[in-house]
Lab assay of single mutants.
Amino acid sequence: SGEEFIAMYTYESSEQGDLTFQQGDVILVTKKDGDWWTGTVGDKAGVFPSNYVRLKD
Rank of each mutant, 00 (worst) to 15 (best):
A45S: 15
G24Y: 04
W36V: 13
G42K: 04
F5R: 04
Q23F: 04
F48S: 04
W37I: 01
I6E: 10
A45H: 15
G17R: 06
K31I: 05
V47L: 13
K32M: 15
F5S: 08
L55S: 15
S13E: 05
T40Q: 14
A45E: 14
V41C: 06
W36C: 06
G34D: 06
S50I: 05
V53W: 01
S50M: 09
G39L: 02
T38N: 12
S14G: 12
W37Y: 12
Q22C: 11
Q16P: 14
V47W: 08
T40H: 11
L19H: 01
D43F: 05
K44H: 05
L19Q: 03
K32A: 02
I6K: 05
W37R: 03
F21D: 02
G42Y: 04
F48M: 02
S13H: 02
S1W: 04
S14M: 11
K56P: 12
S13N: 01
T30E: 05
G42P: 02
D18E: 13
D25K: 00
Q23I: 09
K56V: 07
G42N: 07
I6M: 06
E3D: 05
Q23A: 14
Y11F: 12
G34T: 08
Y52I: 12
A45W: 12
E15Y: 11
L19W: 00
G24E: 04
D57H: 07
G17A: 09
A45T: 14
K44E: 04
S13M: 01
E4C: 07
D18L: 10
G34M: 02
Y52Q: 04
A45Q: 10
G24K: 00
D25E: 14
E3V: 11
V26A: 11
L28M: 11
F21R: 02
G34V: 02
D33N: 09
I6C: 07
G17N: 12
E3I: 13
Y11E: 04
T20A: 13
T30P: 02
D18Q: 08
G17Y: 05
E12P: 06
E3K: 08
S13V: 01
V41H: 15
V53F: 00
E4K: 05
D57F: 01
S50E: 01
I27N: 07
V29C: 03
S14I: 00
N51Q: 06
G17P: 05
R54A: 11
F5Q: 03
M8E: 13
K31R: 09
T30L: 07
E4T: 04
M8R: 12
S1Y: 09
V47H: 12
G39D: 01
P49R: 04
G39R: 00
F21Q: 03
E12G: 08
F21M: 03
A45D: 13
V53D: 02
T30I: 09
L19S: 01
T10N: 14
M8S: 12
T20P: 10
D25Q: 14
L55A: 13
S1H: 09
K32E: 10
Y11C: 06
L19T: 01
K31E: 14
T38Y: 15
G2T: 15
A45R: 13
E15F: 11
D43E: 10
D43G: 09
Q23R: 13
F21A: 02
K56Y: 04
S13Y: 01
G42S: 08
I6L: 08
T10A: 06
D33L: 08
G42F: 05
K32T: 11
G24N: 06
D35H: 15
L19F: 06
E4R: 07
D35R: 09
G2S: 14
S13Q: 05
M8V: 13
V41T: 09
F21Y: 01
S50Q: 10
Y52L: 10
Y11I: 01
F5C: 07
G2M: 07
F48V: 00
G17E: 14
D57S: 12
T10L: 00
K32H: 14
L55N: 08
N51H: 06
K32Q: 15
D18C: 14
D25P: 00
W37C: 07
R54G: 08
D35Q: 05
T20N: 14
D43K: 13
T20F: 03
S1E: 11
V26H: 11
T20I: 07
F48C: 01
E3T: 11
S13W: 01
D25R: 00
S13K: 05
T40Y: 14
S14D: 13
G17D: 07
M8A: 13
D33I: 07
Y52F: 15
F48A: 00
E3N: 11
D35G: 07
G39A: 02
G46D: 00
M8W: 04
E15L: 11
F5V: 06
V47S: 14
Y52C: 08
